[in-house]
């Protein structure tokens, strides 16, 4: 009895792909398998030419609940992924600062997580995941716990950052609107068994408008794919 079945998905380098589906469809499980936090019971999952055997800073993750280390301030959180590599301290600070600036947290380096708003916490989460220059950035409903305005703002921020760093992004969401707004392709997962039902290519140039009829049409396609009213 597996949570996932018949998952066949090739992801291109530098691509922004969304996984969308109802809760319980296994989209988070799929992401955790890619991250190396869980092993698939059958089948293989390869990264480049090697199969994934465990976590690796080439595939970092941004979590819905942020998972910042509460005893570390912003700069120390961001530096975490650099500490396992043999990088001199000064160089670590420099790289961390670069990513803190990139996510717009300049001036908050010494703040502790409890002093930050949800949106700011996720900016830290993003900087911390990007600091190792991962080939793939895994995002598990990263903006799911933020309110609507902040969420839209963060989507724009993320796209801006993605243009700068050009890493592959695999982004899990349950919002069709979010998926069409950010992704190059949207993979629709169904529940019981969790499998890929359809892949929708979002052929709209960026920046995208939510009022564009084609945008609305694609969002409808995805919602119909999820058996939801449009």
């Amino acid at each position: 009895m597996g949570a996932l079945q018949n998952i066949n998905l090739d992801i291109e380098e530098g691509e922004f792909i969304c996984l969308i589906g109802p809760s319980g469809c296994g989209k988070t499980t799929l992401l955790r398998i890619i991250a190396g936090l869980e092993l698939p019971s059958a089948g293989t999952i390869t990264f480049g030419h090697k199969s994934i055997a465990g976590p690796d800073p080439n595939r970092t993750m941004v979590f819905q609940e942020f998972n910042l280390f509460p005893w570390r301030n912003v700069a120390q959180n961001v530096e975490f992924g650099l500490e396992t590599k043999s990088i001199p301290k000064g160089e670590r600070h420099r790289i961390a600062q670069e990513y803190i600036d990139l996510v717009g947290l300049t001036g908050f380096e010494r703040a502790y997580p409890y002093e930050l708003s949800g949106g700011m916490k996720q900016r830290v989460g993003l900087a911390r995941a990007l600091v190792t220059s991962p080939k793939v950035l895994l995002m598990d409903e990263p903006f799911g716990s933020l309110d609507a305005q902040i969420r839209n703002l963060m989507q724009d921020e993320l796209l801006k950052i993605w243009h700068r760093v050009r890493t592959t992004i695999i982004f899990v969401t349950h919002s069709a609107d979010e998926a069409v707004y950010v992704a190059d392709r949207v993979a629709i997962l169904t529940t019981r068994p969790g499998e890929i039902k359809d892949i929708v290519a979002v052929d709209i140039g960026r920046p995208r408008s939510r009022f564009d009829p084609h945008f609305v049409g694609l969002r409808c396609n995805i919602l119909e794919g999820l058996d939801m009213p449009c």
Binding site: G36, L37, P55, T60, F63, N67, G81, R128, A129, T132
Partner: peptide, 10 residues
Amino acid sequence: RLVETAQVLG
């Protein structure tokens, strides 16, 4: 979740 976060970061 914090342990997993650390694992993902290396």
